[in-house]
Computed example of a mutant assay.
Amino acid sequence: MTPPMRLAPVIQPYAWGSPTAFPELFGTPATGEPQAEMWMGAHPAAPSTAGGVPLTELIARDPEGMTGTSGPGLPYLLKVLAVAGPLSLQVHPSAELARAGFAREEAAGVPADDPARAYRDPFPKPEMVCALTPFHGLCGFRAPDEAAGLLESLGVAEAAGWVRTLRARPAAEALREVFQDMLGDAAKTARQAVERALAGAGGELAVYADLARACPDDPGVTAALLLNHVRLGPGEAVFLGAGVPHAYLDGVAVEIMGNSDNVLRCGLTRKHRDVPELMRVVDFTPAPPHRVPPAGVGGWHGYHPPVTQFALVRHELGEGAAHTVPGGVPQILLCVSGGVVAGGLALGPGESAFVPASVPELRLTGAATVFRALPG
C-alpha cells in the first residue's frame, strides 16, 4: 500500500488572476504577477508532482494501486481559482460532442498545440465551483422575458429587435437567435450602443457595466446580458454541465472538473473564438444556476453534482476533532486553512496530497478546513 503523498501543484499565471489572493490565503510567495489557478491532479498539460515525479507517471507505473477501479487515470482535476478579472465567456462539450470533435480534428491533422484547436481530448468537462470567498459569475441563460426587460431598461433603440424576438419566439429558439446575432459582425453598432448605455449603470446592470469597462468593444459584453448573474458565499457551490455558457468574474473558489481541456470561447477574451462550433455545443434552455447544497452532519459537507467524474467533501475540523474517511478510490486532499494530519502527513494552508486507491481508510485530525476530491 502506497501512503498519501504530498503534491506540488502547478500555478497558472493567466492574466485574469490575482497577484495577492494565494499569498494572502495560503501564505505562498508572491511573484508580482497574476496567479490565476492552482492545479492539483494528473492532467497531461500540467500534472502535479510528488517527490519530483509527475503524478501521471506515478499512476502509469501502478494504475491499479493508484486509481483502482477508476481506471488508468484520474477522472477529475482539482483547482483553486483566484479570479480578479473576467474569464472568457465559454462552454464545454458533452461526452458525445467531445468524442466526435476530437476525432474530427485528429483526422484533419490539427496540431495539438494549435490555438485554434477546439477539442484537445475526447472527454467532457463538467465542473463545479465552491466559494472560499464571496464569488460571482455568469451562468446559464435567463428566461427570455427577463433578458428582454434588462435590454429594454437600457433605452437603446438599436436593441429593440432583440427585445421583440425574446418576447415573441419560443424560449430556446429566441435565445439562440439573439445570442448568435449579438456575437455577429452585423450587430457591432447595436453592441456599441448597449455599451454606451451601460456606462455608469447601477443596480442589476452594475455587473454588466463592469464588464463593459473591463472588455470594451467585446461582443461578449452584450451577450452576457442574456445570462444569469450568480453570487456565492463561502461554502456555496454551483454546477455547470455540458453546454452551459459561463464566465467567472471575481473571487476565490475551489473548482473540480472532468479531467479535460476542451473549451469553446465566444467573448470576454483575446484568445481564439470559434462561434460556429460553440453554437453547436451551447444549451439554450433557460434555467436558474444549478446550485449544489452541501449534505452532511458533524463537520462533513458533501457536494454531489449529477456526474460520475467527481464529488467534493468539505471537512470542518475543530480542535481535537477527527474524521475517518473511507478509501478505495483515488482522492486529493487540499487544506485551505489551519493544519491537518492525514495518514501521518501534515498539511498546512494551500498544501495538498494524493491518496492512492490502495489506502483502505484515512484519518484526518487537526483544526482545519479541508477539501477532499474523489470520483462521483
Rank of each mutant, 00 (worst) to 15 (best):
L87P: 08
A171N: 07
E319P: 13
M257L: 12
A98M: 06
T369H: 12
P9M: 11
P216D: 01
S70D: 13
G338N: 07
L278H: 01
P44Y: 12
S337K: 09
P276Q: 14
A346E: 05
A287P: 04
R372D: 05
G338A: 06
R270I: 14
A116M: 08
P170C: 10
L240C: 01
A199S: 09
L312Q: 02
D185R: 14
A199G: 07
S48R: 08
L374A: 13
P375A: 12
R104Y: 08
L232Y: 02
V313K: 00
L264Y: 07
T31E: 02
G243Q: 09
D185Y: 12
L154G: 01
H323S: 15
S18I: 04
V340K: 00
E351S: 06
L132K: 00
A368Y: 03
E316K: 09
A168Y: 11
V129F: 10
R142T: 05
V282L: 05
L74K: 07
D145I: 14
V307T: 05
G299Q: 07
H323V: 12
G320Q: 06
E277V: 13
L81W: 01
P19E: 03
T285P: 15
P54W: 02
A367D: 14
A116N: 09
H229V: 03
A190R: 00
A82F: 03
L7H: 02
A112M: 13
A36D: 02
V275H: 03
H315N: 05
G233P: 11
V207D: 07
M66K: 07
L312H: 01
V359K: 02
G296H: 11
P349A: 09
G203D: 09
E105T: 10
Y76K: 09
R117E: 02
P288D: 15
V370S: 01
R280K: 14
C139S: 14
P326D: 13
L240P: 00
T308H: 11
C335L: 02
S70F: 07
F141C: 05
T69M: 14
L97F: 12
V238K: 09
L77H: 00
H229F: 07
T28A: 04
G71P: 15
V194Y: 01
Q90V: 06
G343V: 13
H290M: 10
Q331E: 14
P293K: 11
S48N: 10
E255G: 04
A46F: 11
L74E: 06
A143D: 10
L198K: 00
L334N: 00
I256R: 02
E105L: 10
